[in-house]
Design a protein around this nucleic acid. Structure first.
Lengths: 227, 227
DNA sequence: CGAGTATCTTGACATTCGTCAAGGGATAGG
DNA sequence: CCTATCCCTTGACGAATGTCAAGATACTCG
């Protein structure tokens, strides 16, 4: 198992990047690694948090089951992203459930390891605060998107977020499950399908789980357009 | 000016409640008080944060101006609630703008006062983390509401949140500006009007800026119902 | 290779919400 | 007391989305 690769991914996560080498080693030495198959549950809503989580590979989705039985995807975490910091630290129950959206590798850092560290270095607390704050801003952005943009525009922005190029053509790989993407974007799978159909006009072609973008800038213009 | 009342409100804010008396005094001694008229701006998006804010009276709205020029109300803070903790602490620019939704009294605690305190007591950092986390959960709840409930249901939940009783009839006073409420609930004033009209069937009567709820439990059932 | 299942797409229809426009009621100022 | 203005309400219409249903495509297991 390529633990070294995973370690270097973990080192670059927001949670760790700002910490001194010595602290990183401490955390890594107390961390747990685990593979999750697609669909497997990491934790359930209202469970008590005992660790924070860093995604090393694959996608993890955070969701809530609404009283009506619908599933609302709150966010999706990809390689190098961490979640659960604030809850773990306060020994609170998780406000959401977490599930592997694809097969994935996840590192777990026990709460106790963090608490010990914070007692020695207040900078760690600030780092956690910072990552919590990023999540908060991400949610604000989502809220805004949901209110102010059409479905097709949200899809376009989602694709642009997966792009690794600034201009010209680009092909992005999506997670296998389109229900997941639809949920993340606040719509039903049918609407996602229709949005993709509309994006053809903006130069987007869907082939299985790969989206081919003819020109990134054209698509960006589409997002900015009104209606 | 009844500073004593305001002080006791500030003491009970999430930010302070958990702190030892001595620290509270320190913060209060360095705090600024100010009155804002309705419509006045507290700060603008992208401004650098130099203080955190506690609402002592009235309502403050946090909003973003979207690229299209629309205003999206992110959240509304009422008496006893605080905001801006995480930004102030990290010396980041505000991600949202803040404006007095009604005439209001606000206390400002300079960042430096907080930073000094955190250096002496790591518990302060945890407290701030906790309040940041509450905001985060509030946003998750909003996101969920927006995706899974109809306009009328969102309005009903908003009214229930203003209720001080658990059962029976209840009258709640709303802010004067219905545009604000509509924004907070992610809809246009016209839709808010229609939602109110629908809620008549659930025993809600609107009289100017007071909503009379015939039976709180009936309204709560309405929220739980599908469609 | 073939059948069965799951997932994605497409269509028709009902509902909801935004937009535009007109009307009604309250308040302030003359 | 009257009038002008502002805000809220109501109606009509169109666009977007959810729902239901059917068909298409891909994947799995025998």
């Amino acid at each position: 198992m390529p633990h070294e690769i995973h370690k270097s991914i973990a080192r670059n996560a927001v949670l760790m990047k700002a910490l001194p080498e010595q602290h990183i080693e401490t955390l890594l030495s107390r961390a747990l690694w685990r593979h999750y198959d697609r669909g497997e549950t990491l934790f359930l809503q209202d469970e008590e948090a005992t660790a924070i989580h860093i995604v090393l590979d694959g996608w993890v989705k955070l969701y809530r089951v609404t009283p009506n039985g619908n599933e609302a995807v709150v966010s999706v975490f990809k390689r190098g992203e961490s979640f659960g910091e604030a809850v773990a630290l306060r020994n609170l129950p998780y406000p959401v459930s977490a599930e592997a959206a694809t097969g994935c590798e996840v590192m777990h850092i026990p709460t106790s390891a963090l608490v010990d560290l914070i007692r020695h270095d207040s900078e760690v607390g600030l780092t956690i605060l910072s990552s919590t704050f990023s999540h908060l801003q991400g949610l604000v952005a989502q809220l805004e998107q949901l209110k102010a943009q059409t479905g097709a525009q949200r899809v376009a922005e989602f694709l642009l977020g997966l792009c690794d190029r600034e201009t010209g053509p680009c092909a992005v790989k999506m997670p296998y499950d389109k229900v997941l993407i639809a949920g993340r974007l606040g719509m039903k799978p049918e609407s996602l399908s229709r949005s993709f159909a509309r994006l053809k006009a903006a130069g987007v072609k869907i082939e299985k789980d790969v989206a081919r973008i003819a020109d990134v800038e054209t698509l960006r213009d589409y997002v900015e357009e009104e209606h």
